[in-house]
Write a protein that binds this DNA or RNA. Structure first.
Lengths: 216, 216, 216, 216
DNA sequence: GATGAATGAGCGTTCATTCAT
DNA sequence: AATGAATGAACGCTCATTCAT
């Protein structure tokens, strides 16, 4: 009974959050009205304010959910062991899986780019752990700066993963199957692994440290 | 009435288009009001409508300018000759130069992702030539589908270029110099060339060695 | 459950009435929301409605408390005996003391002036006894109408008392000490006694001297 | 024709200001919605914002009009010459005439008492000149502080004038004719002159300066 | 060409109020 | 007695757009 009550009481708030999640990811902060959220959630508009205070707070609740999931994903992934190649494969797989499971997240993240400066720190909280992750994976090679610095690999790889999702609507015309179908996703995963393999090969080639710890 | 005055007081229509260009790129379609455009251009609000009809048409005029420049860039680049590696370097350089010269374009493009479907065909008109370009560059290898298909390289490379620009505000915290400074851009260019070199090496490796280990 | 706890957690209904009293007096009917009352009283918003029905009724309860106190003040004051001068001094002192003891009342009363007609009868219930009071004090002089009628003295004297309190925030800039400080209040009391003395002198002068020069 | 145009163009803005003037005076700042102003002025709600920016600015425009008229009244009144009695009579007449001509002003002023602190400075700008005026009138008696200080006379006399107007709706039940009728106003004027005469007599009696400049 | 004025629709938000628990 | 949730109406305000001049 008490469980029931909790479920019933959470229902409206959850429906609102789901609706906001969906719409903000599709249309961005400015493209979504509180009225639209209320209608999507099939609740009264005032209820949205009752449960989440205002539009900014609702938006941040949506963001925080994803950032928490994002952090959990990173913390739940063991990327310290194995060869350089293995570590990168682990990372790319984990990131790709996360995007598949949270397919509204990329759109949400892109939307932040046009938001007022307030939300840039939100993005940085999302980027930071991933850059650290890349640093960790490349730690043996001692590349702190220059064109092979971890941050460049972060931008290149995250972009290769993210944009596949955000550009899906535009890409559909050029794909033979829906880009988000399991088959297409598997193909993209193979491509990303190929990219990682190639980059790791190229990297090891350039740094030329045959004596380095755990040669690949 | 002097030449100076005329130059300073550029044609109203131009001033409006410039203002719209700037604001749409910064804030996205929904983040910009016609009033804001008028104020930025220092013209009367009704003038904006007089010259461009309505908000959608103004937005499309801004888009069209960039897509025309984009097409010109592609058409003006000779990517048919040279080795596969050379052709890719040419492409990446041309695309990067274009972004530097048209630094409002990436933001504009990202904004389209949230524009409810209307503008997807605009994006596709921008993507199409680039995909053809990639196909042309890879024509010798006969890769029409699968994880090595040209379209995957398009997504990977365009993302690696594009996101460096669109994510600039968020990246600044992780860069030692401004990501848009000439030095940082040169570094990014080197990284992209490294990426291309690695991918071409990896590609040639795989294509010539059908018996090679399958990806993961 | 100790006596202390009970005293601190006064009856909910009382806390609400106090909060409403304070806020309505400060901000007027329109300036106060039921939510604000609930927060000030640190009770649930629905409790306010449970105890007082609706906003109008809550407001009226606050008013009624003051009007009852006002009536008690008048009934508890012996203004029938003594000289005309003494009777007026008694009145003015009683009224002034009442304002000091009920310093939220003047603000509340002023707020009524903007309440669309509904509450005018409330004001009249407050004014009536005071006018009767003035009539009683002046009963020997047989002044029912004209510029010396009791009602004019009521307006003049009540205004001289009331506005000193309601205009306090604006007067502070022109006072050397806080207008509500005991010293300032004592000074105001002396002034009011001076006013009463002067008016009584003037009144006796005119009434006893029908041949006196007409005003102006 | 140009005159016509100007009149036509001013029409809407003027109608809005008139409506705001009327409603704010009747109901106070919080009691008036922008919609109500628009309906009273028979214009579109957006027009109100077009012409006056926002509610605060509209309110301040109304206030400023009265404060300007108030200043003009004071500046246009010669209260430097004549006996003390004459100077006070001049003041009271001017103030009373101003209230009759600007009968919405008292209500507006009272409404300010419940407004946020922003508007207190507005009130003080209204009060200041009048207090100076009182000081000027009493300058020969050297009364800077104490219960006979000019500021006390300001409060007493302004209250006697102001409240007669603001309390009109409540007073009507106790008056034999409408308090704002010419006859009633004339009677009130006589009363005020009686008050002034009595106070001046009382004052001269107390300060006892038979050798003072211009004995009354 | 250019612009001041006007407007219906919609925005984010708060309101007083109700009701099931 | 008390409260979390819900809601229709209204709030101040901005929007894209039109139109007479």
């Amino acid at each position: 009974m008490s469980t029931d009550t909790i479920q019933v009481n959470r229902k409206t708030a959850d429906r609102i959050l789901d609706a906001a999640d969906k719409l903000f990811g599709q249309l961005g902060y400015d493209g979504v009205s509180m009225n639209a959220v209320a209608m999507e959630a099939e609740v009264n508009k005032a209820s949205v304010f009752y449960h989440y205070g205002n539009k900014d707070q609702l938006f941040e609740r949506v963001l925080e959910n994803y950032f928490a999931a994002h952090r959990n994903m990173i913390e739940g992934t063991d990327y310290h062991n194995g060869s350089l190649r293995e570590r990168f494969h682990t990372m790319v797989d984990a990131y790709l899986n996360f995007m598949v499971d949270n397919n509204r997240y990329p759109g949400l993240l892109q939307g932040l780019l046009h938001s007022s400066a307030n939300y840039i720190s939100f993005m940085q909280r999302s980027i930071g752990p991933f850059i650290d992750w890349t640093k960790e994976a490349l730690k043996d090679l001692d590349l702190d700066e220059g064109y092979l610095a971890p941050r460049h690999f972060y931008v290149t790889l995250s972009a290769a993963i993210l944009n596949y999702f955000t550009y899906t609507p535009a890409l559909e015309a050029f794909w033979d199957k829906s880009p988000q179908s399991p088959e297409a996703l598997e193909e993209r995963r193979e491509h990303l692994h190929f990219v990682v393999d190639s980059l790791v090969d190229g990297l090891l080639n350039r740094v030329k440290q045959p004596s380095a710890h755990k040669p690949d």
